[in-house]
């Protein structure tokens, strides 16, 4: 295999690993605190994912750029300063241009400074790899985390609120659109919705744990199924090889 091909496959691996095979939330079980706290709605979770991805990619790139200049003894403090800078920038940006998202995320945006995924990727990957690979790793992990928490947000919003709101947090096009899925948006004479099949526990912290648990179970089932299929294939290949060897030996006799 040529060097170019090896490099390309390394780049591809750096990007794809974080999305599914080494998903930070569903496989490595990291970054649980914001995942449980900001997934009450799809839009908030997606917004958090976007900001998280920006912080992760930027800090990965800068850490990778500075990795040879930073003395070993002050590696971690330097990484934290870099990450804190991008978190502060993101906070200011959100407060100025996405005020709804900023108020929904609250303290969890600031807590990105000590997020174990961001710190972990800086330490484990960006500190030892080139800029482009670190950029791809940041993108992959960011996308992986974003889709996982967005899915959690979608499930919790639909089951917990009974409705799906679009355009409240990313309010660029006037009034938000509220889709009545499990709960009617029309009220009866007492001010109650006409139908309401929502389960409020999904909006509470306990609901976040339940949804995360179910998602982890599905992820584990898929992984186990894949492993079982691979094992079965290996076994079949071994048996076929053995049968072939027996046939060859019989023929020789």
């Amino acid at each position: 295999m040529s060097m170019d091909k090896i490099k390309r496959s390394q780049h591809k691996e750096s990007f794809l690993n974080g999305i599914l095979r080494e998903n930070p939330l569903l496989v490595q079980i990291l970054g649980l605190c914001p995942a449980l706290a900001v997934t009450k709605s799809l839009e908030t979770a997606f917004g958090m994912g976007l900001l998280f991805t920006f912080v992760l990619v930027s800090s990965n790139v800068i850490v990778s750029l500075l990795r040879k200049l930073i003395p070993e003894e002050i590696r971690t403090p330097c990484y934290i300063v870099v990450i804190a800078t991008f978190v502060t920038i993101v906070k200011m940006f959100a407060e100025a241009f996405l005020p709804e998202l900023y108020s929904s995320l609250g303290v969890f945006l600031s807590l990105l400074v000590v997020n174990c995924i961001v710190l972990g990727r800086s330490e484990a990957f960006a500190g030892q790899n080139g800029v482009f690979d670190s950029f791809l790793d940041g993108c992959g992990n960011g996308i992986g985390y974003t889709w996982a928490i967005s899915l959690m947000g979608l499930i919790r919003e639909i089951f917990g609120k009974g409705t799906l709101t679009i355009g409240k947090v990313f309010n660029f096009f006037g009034d938000p659109l509220v889709l009545p899925i499990l709960k009617s948006t029309t009220l009866d004479t007492n001010g109650d919705p006409l139908y309401d099949f929502s389960i409020s526990i999904f909006q509470n912290p306990a609901g976040a744990f339940i949804v995360l648990g179910l998602m982890l179970a599905v992820m584990a089932a898929i992984t186990n199924h894949k492993k079982a299929v691979e094992k079965a294939k290996e076994r079949a290949a071994k048996e076929a090889a053995k049968a072939e060897a027996t046939l060859v030996a019989g023929g020789a006799k």
């Binding site: 500075l66 200049l69 930073i70 003395p71 003894e73 002050i74 403090p77 330097c78 300063v81 870099v82």
Partner: peptide
């Protein structure tokens, strides 16, 4: 060390 920290 000091210079690196100060620069960052």
């Amino acid at each position: 060390v000091s210079l690196t920290l100060a620069t960052i």
